[in-house]
Design a protein around this nucleic acid. Structure first.
Lengths: 277, 277
DNA sequence: CAAAGTCCTGAATCATATG
DNA sequence: ACATATGATTCAGGACTTT
């Protein structure tokens, strides 16, 4: 059974071999798993860390319906302070850098809540930023109180391990078709993940509060990796990265600590893969 | 002559009064000028700091703190490192924060080269980010080399002095008309500054390498200030901020060290103001 | 079955007044 | 300071219900 072998439970203080992590979901703490992963292993990294949203304790009520906004209140997004968040992100990025091949690139996504801290830490660690790519949501949640602009974007930082890593993968012809305006701009219009694509748990609630759309990962993987390459997602969540990587004939390694999410990813892989042209 | 009184040459160790800085270009070092400016004076700040583009080592730039004496020779100089840049930006933002009124907001613009560092510093200083607003250039530099995405955006951070500053100015109906789509999104499509709008020096070269478009400032000033309010630009450059503020019936204070730019701003104000609806 | 109408929701740092 | 009540603001898209 393919899915019985999909998950690899990480045992503390056990070294991981280069072969056994291919096309696997490693259930464990990313900081510990990465430390036991061979250096310079991956061709591409996609990282979707906690954003540290700092939402108010009270839920926002809608005025015309009786529902509340089901905002992100997951434990994994809570940090005591910016300092704690910085420390976590620095550790995660540092360990991720070590397992990247010399010419690998990394994509990190967040919003204004934390993307500035992330970018600063990346620069301090020696990553060389190639672009900031803006995900422009076609259907964001409006700011109906009208006290700020509707936050319709998330920011992706795309970077190499360091300034001198020149021979990274970039599929220029494809990349040109993704951005607005057909000039290969750093702005991608993509709807948020919903409908049938959105994974549900046994109770019919959304499996993961921040599932990333397949189309976002499709563009990332197609522009910055080759067929047969190995893609890492150290904070896998709902597993979009591995799911799309497989559909696009790349190999993947995903790390996820939460057992519920790991099971959700297993279920996701049991269904037929989305077919891309 | 109005233009003879437009410029106020800053004298070191001299306190500035609240009245004498209204509708003035203060010629001097921003860090020194701000220190001698009364606290809680301004309703709105627009800041367009050096971007620290990190050109090859021999062309590294550094913003040098100049004295009165060598101010004549002032020009862009090197930043030796990220640390130097951070220190400069932290100082500039800290001093700017002190001269902002309690309910004032600040806009800071940069690109991926330094916007992450700036945002991190702002958060550390207690600024509360309301939005990141993306300026999407409709006619970006054709920098398509096929090795990265065309960089078609600059990022604006819009923030209050702190988390509890609720009663800031936001013209919601106007704001809705600016963003792409119909929901007041945080993405503004604006062409880069060129044509007749672009200021030239005596030799016919562009006066300033990063002159900001009038339309950008129009949107900022209209959405986040009231008529009669006082707008600060501590790094004035070509003076778009004060120029647009005046045209929109706001007062302004601009600080600029470089004499060539100050003269350029004076010339700019001699011409009839652009008329806005 | 098709078309039209209703309801729900999405990484949200979304207000103000009174006690 | 915190808790609670009041108020009259939002949009695209998918799922569901009704005609």
């Amino acid at each position: 059974m393919e899915n019985e072998e999909l998950v690899l439970k990480f045992m503390k203080n056990t070294e991981l071999c280069s072969e056994c992590i291919i096309d696997k979901i490693i259930q464990g703490n990313a900081l510990e798993v990465l430390e036991k992963t061979p250096a310079e292993t991956f061709d591409l990294v996609f990282m979707d860390p906690p954003y540290f949203l700092q939402l108010p304790p009270k839920k926002l009520k809608r005025w015309n319906v009786k529902t509340e906004v089901d905002a992100v209140d997951d434990k994994w997004d809570k940090f005591a302070s910016f300092e704690d968040y910085d420390e976590y992100m620095r550790d995660l990025l540092f360990k991720t850098k070590k397992v990247m091949k010399e010419n690998a690139t990394i994509w990190v996504i967040s919003t204004y809540h934390s993307i500035f801290r992330i970018g600063k830490i990346m620069q301090d660690l020696g990553f060389w930023i190639l672009n900031d790519v803006l995900w422009l949501k076609t259907n964001p949640m409006p700011n109906w109180l009208g006290v700020r602009f509707t936050n319709a974007t998330e920011t992706l930082i795309w970077a190499t391990k360091d300034k001198n890593a020149k021979k990274y993968t970039f599929k220029r012809e494809l990349a040109k078709t993704f951005g607005v305006g057909s000039i290969g701009a750093n702005v991608w219009e993509i709807p948020i993940c919903g409908g049938k694509e959105r994974l549900k748990d046994a109770e019919g609630n959304k499996l993961h509060s921040t599932q990333k759309p397949v189309e976002l990962l499709r563009r990332i993987i197609l522009t910055s990796s080759n067929e047969g390459g190995l893609v890492l997602d150290p904070v896998a969540g709902s597993g979009t990265t591995g799911y799309v990587a497989k559909a696009l004939k790349r190999h993947f390694t995903m790390i996820e600590m939460n057992e519920k999410y790991v099971k959700g990813i297993q279920d996701r892989f049991k269904k037929p893969l989305t077919q891309f042209k």
